[in-house]
C-alpha cells in the first residue's frame, strides 16, 4: 500500500469519525440546558444569540451548523465551547496533562508486565508462573473505577497511619517536580497495574510460543547457555508482537484514561470528555474524537515503523 493511499485513507477516517461524533452529539445533546437553571431566566433571544455565536443553536438548521463547523476544521479551527473558549487551545493544553499521565502509566506498566510475563514463561508451571498468574487474574477482574477508589482509600489510610501527606489523590500539583510526582503516583498506578496485567499475559504467551520454536532448540543445540538463548533468541523475537500491542495501547489510552483522570481530578482529555458531555459541548466532543482517531492512527504508523526496525528479517 502506497504511503499516499494510506495518508488519504487515514485522513478520511479521521474526518468521517469526527463528523459522525459531531452529528451524533449535535442531535442528542442540548446546549440550551446550560442556561435553563439560571435565575432570572435569560430571554430566549439572548440565549439564541449566545448559542449561535458558538455555533450551538439547535434552532439553526443542522446542515448549516455542520458546514460551519467542518469549514472551520478545514481551516484548523475546531470551534468553540459553549462558553466561548477555543476548543483547539483547550484540548492542546489538556493533551499535555494526559500525555504525562499516560507515558508514566504505560512505562511502568510495560516494564512490569514484560518482566513478569517473560519470567513466568521461562518458569512455566513453576511457582512464579502460578503466583503471577493468580495476581494477574485478580487485577484483570478489578474495574478501573474500583481500583482507583481502592487506591485512594489505601492512600488516605497510609497518609493517616504515617502522619504524612505524601500521596496526593487529587489534581496535578503545581509545585516543584516532587509535588507533581506525588500527585502522579496513584493515577499512574491505576493505569499501570491493569496494563501490566494484560501485558504480562500477552508477553507470557508470546514467549511460550517462541520458546517452543525450532530456532530456540537450534540455539541450545549449538551450546549457548540458557540465559543467552532466552534473551538473544527467544525474548528478542517475542518482543516483535508485544511491541505492536504496546504501541496500539498507547494510542488508545490517550482518550482511554477517562476514569483515572476523572477520579483523580486531573484536567486532561479524558476528564474533558466527561465535562463536555455534561455541558453539551458538541464541538469539544468532535474535537476529542478527532484527537483520539489521530492518536490511534499515528500509533498504527508507529507500530509499522517499529515492526520494520525490530523485524529486519521480515519473518512471518
Amino acid at each position: 500500500m502506497g504511503i499516499m493511499v494510506r495518508l488519504v485513507n487515514y485522513t478520511a477516517l479521521i474526518v468521517v469519525a469526527s463528523s459522525l461524533a459531531w452529528l451524533l452529539a449535535a442531535v442528542t445533546l442540548d446546549p440550551r440546558a446550560n442556561y435553563a437553571g439560571r435565575t432570572p431566566a435569560p430571554p430566549v433571544a439572548v440565549v439564541d444569540a449566545a448559542l449561535s455565536e458558538v455555533n450551538l443553536n439547535d434552532h439553526d438548521p443542522l446542515l448549516d451548523r455542520y458546514l460551519t463547523w467542518i469549514s472551520g476544521v478545514a481551516r484548523g479551527d475546531f470551534g468553540r465551547t459553549w462558553d466561548g473558549l477555543s476548543v483547539g487551545a483547550d484540548l492542546a493544553d489538556r493533551a499535555g496533562v494526559t500525555l504525562r499521565l499516560v507515558t508514566a502509566g504505560l512505562l511502568v506498566g510495560a516494564l512490569l508486565g514484560l518482566t513478569v510475563g517473560t519470567l513466568a514463561a521461562v518458569h512455566h508451571r513453576r511457582w512464579f508462573d502460578r503466583l503471577s498468574g493468580g495476581v494477574v487474574f485478580l487485577l484483570l477482574a478489578v474495574p478501573a473505577v474500583v481500583l482507583a477508589n481502592v487506591l485512594i482509600i489505601g492512600a488516605i489510610r497510609f497518609n493517616d497511619a504515617t502522619g504524612t501527606r505524601f500521596l496526593m489523590v487529587s489534581g496535578e500539583g503545581d509545585g516543584g517536580p516532587l509535588d507533581r510526582l506525588r500527585h502522579l503516583v496513584l493515577p499512574a498506578l491505576t493505569l499501570a497495574l491493569p496494563l501490566a496485567a494484560v501485558f504480562s499475559r500477552y508477553q507470557r504467551n508470546a514467549m511460550l510460543d517462541v520458546l517452543d520454536a525450532d530456532y530456540v532448540r537450534t540455539a541450545r543445540a549449538k551450546g549457548l547457555p540458557r540465559r543467552t538463548v532466552v534473551v538473544r533468541h527467544a525474548l528478542r523475537t517475542a518482543l516483535i508482537p508485544t511491541t505492536t500491542y504496546l504501541t496500539f495501547t498507547f494510542g488508545a489510552l490517550l482518550v482511554g484514561s477517562t476514569v483515572t483522570e476523572t477520579v483523580f481530578g486531573r484536567p486532561g482529555l479524558g476528564q474533558r470528555l466527561i465535562t463536555a458531555i455534561q455541558t453539551s459541548d458538541v464541538n469539544t466532543v468532535a474535537g476529542i474524537t478527532a484527537v483520539a482517531a489521530a492518536a490511534l492512527l499515528l500509533s498504527a504508523v508507529a507500530a509499522d515503523v517499529l515492526q520494520r526496525v525490530l523485524n529486519p528479517g521480515r519473518a512471518r
Binding site: A213, Y215, R217, R236, T237, L310, N311, G313
Partner: peptide, 13 residues
C-alpha cells in the same frame, strides 16, 4: 542438523 530449515534459524538475526 535439524529438519525444517525455515524454522531452524532465528528469523531476526
Amino acid at each position: 542438523v535439524f529438519q525444517d530449515p525455515l524454522q531452524a534459524f532465528t528469523p531476526v538475526h
